[in-house]
Design a protein around this nucleic acid. Structure first.
Lengths: 102, 102
DNA sequence: TCATTATATGAACATATTATCATATAAGCA
DNA sequence: TGCTTATATGATAATATGTTCATATAATGA
């Protein structure tokens, strides 16, 4: 059974891990994901809730989408975004709890 | 009981979380931490094991030290570094396992 | 003290990242 | 078709980041 601590990291795993953590390493993206914990949101709803520009939200959602951390469904012209990686979301929750306890 | 998913993020927590994930969002730092999983290492040992410059290792260790992710003990002129945040190390392991399964 | 070994530091450079503005695209409806 | 709303995209500028070189510091032992 492979274990994360007993073997060398192959370069592909290293790349995915660093990219994913990088995605979580920005306050704006964390706020977006944290908002999506509660409910799916449209792009404009996110922008309004977090008081950031629509284009900023759209750019960051594309970033998160590329890493398959979020997905969306369309309803007319509106796109509703939601989390798409339960495990990474769980990791984010853990870190938030860890940090808020320190 | 506070929960990471049901309340707003205060700015201090947001800062800590993003900084910590940023620390994990670099391949070199991940490799260093992954090496330290197995055993404490001197700066030079890390540099040799990973084939990177001593000064690079030292800079990254300072980064990790500032976030209290690593600590060290001195033995003569040699500093042995080791992990200093079990929870964050656990999160790193989870992500590595998650990524290597995908 | 002087030389040696191990580590840390500062400056510089190249590259990456982030937010913003302006504009484009896409869907729905009159 | 033309208008409106929602979202995406491209270019740009400011800032942040990561590595390297050169050098400084710190501990040890002859």
């Amino acid at each position: 059974m492979e274990s994360s601590s007993s073997e060398d990291l192959d370069s592909e795993t290293l790349f995915i891990v660093s990219q994913t953590f990088k995605a979580l390493g920005d306050p704006t993206r964390i706020r977006i994901l944290h908002l999506l914990f509660k409910k799916e949101c449209s792009v404009n709803a996110i922008a309004e809730a977090l008081d950031i520009r629509q284009s900023t939200v759209s750019h960051q959602l594309r970033f998160l989408k590329n890493l398959r951390l979020v997905k969306y469904r369309r309803e007319g012209t509106t796109l509703y975004y939601s989390p798409d990686d339960e495990h990474v979301m769980l990791i984010l929750k853990q870190m938030i709890d860890h940090a808020s306890h320190s």
